[in-house]
Design a protein around this nucleic acid. Sequence first.
DNA 1: CGCATTTTGTGCGATATATGAACAAATGTC
DNA 2: GACATTTGTTCATATATCGCACAAAATGCG
Lengths: 251, 251
Amino acid sequence: MRETDFIGGFAKGLKVIEAFGETQPRLTISDVARDTGLDRATARRCLLTLAELGYARYDGKFFELTPRILRLGHAYLSATPLPRLVQPFLDRLSEEVGQSASASVLDGTEIVYVARAAQKRVMSINLTAGSRLPAYCASMGRVLLAALPETEARAILAASDLKANTSFTKTDPDVLMAEFARIRREGHAVIDQELEIGLCSIAVPLENARGRVVAALNIGAPAAHAPAVDMPERYLPAMRAVQAALRPLLA
Amino acid sequence: MRETDFIGGFAKGLKVIEAFGETQPRLTISDVARDTGLDRATARRCLLTLAELGYARYDGKFFELTPRILRLGHAYLSATPLPRLVQPFLDRLSEEVGQSASASVLDGTEIVYVARAAQKRVMSINLTAGSRLPAYCASMGRVLLAALPETEARAILAASDLKANTSFTKTDPDVLMAEFARIRREGHAVIDQELEIGLCSIAVPLENARGRVVAALNIGAPAAHAPAVDMPERYLPAMRAVQAALRPLLA
DNA sequence: CGCATTTTGTGCGATATATGAACAAATGTC
DNA sequence: GACATTTGTTCATATATCGCACAAAATGCG
């Protein structure tokens, strides 16, 4: 790609939108300039452009995004086959086992939920399509990392912020790499309260017809209700069925 | 705003992202140029920029969005108070009545789902945060339009594509305006299979502490299970409770 | 296969945008 | 209330982008 095939203003604008993530919903021009590393004048022009297009509101001091911004992510969710294909399977699976079922893909060091069927939310975590979790300590993340060539998986671990969310969290890259090998052998990953105390989950890879891993499927449940050691026996059969049913449908 | 405070390249790039909505997930340069009205050279630069940043993939022929694009919408969902505040209430409400509960806001002629708690999905419609429906024929849309000054509501109707999705759909602006007046008097809207045969729903406005309508809340159910005429009696009490509980929490 | 049609890539002049410094206004501090 | 900071805005100019026209591939079709 040539230098001139890159639109700097567009890239900067996208950076500005992402500056609104997680933290404050209301940002001043200077806030955005600081968070993005852009010049204040440039940040201001990006924000005014967003406001002009209806993606943001401006009260003279603070900018905040409007729901119109959801059009951008929705373009992906409604246009991409994966979320639409797996959703009905998640619904059925979730109802069958009485727990939340989700599907996700890898984006850098994080997993991104692309579809989800929730049961009564007892956990503190509130997840929807678009939600992100660190890959290294999530069951679906483990499955997706295990599907990569070892050098790639190790590179992603190296780029990750491997912090111990709980006393159960595995943070040693070598321990994690060994875990990936086990996952490849057994075909599933189990997380025992590594993300949050009281939360266990089990995940399997979703392969397409050509055998490539294109996503991960998981079931999450309170540890009190489904201890990690019981999960494979209890949930794997139903998950394997979904896995098999989806294989011929995935591109 | 001055002319020079607008970044054309950014606006064009956003238009390109939205071109992926609804239709095909895989678009060529020419497809995008046609759909957006942009010059091919410009569309190409926007697409290459998206690919360079990891928001899109390019196989030499087709572009498709990657899940990274969800960062943009997620910036809104995680940063804005409304979705996070209402989600637990929707969960409880949905479980209590055994039907799907949702919250949405108005964006132009459409409502945008900002949070949702789904029960077993019997309907053909698959809705998640970010999903859009025409306001004129959705229960939440009626509630939100009814909350606007009459001239504004009429202007939005005028801009809407008032098509009859079913034989029940009300499409006459005057009939709809009369319906809005009724909704203001009674405080709720009921839809009887106007969007899809077999689907009924009821909605109430969500007001903030200052009495401004900031969103709408609804319950949707199969007509076979909950005929439209029975909905107010059956669901309104629980919905009123949520309405009252949220009022002091909303900005 | 060869021609017509469509699609994609590129060079260039005209035009729009980014930059950083300078200034003005608002805010915070003592 | 005076001073120091931070913030928003403007401007001139260097730079990047736009869109056209054309060339090169790719595709469709009889």
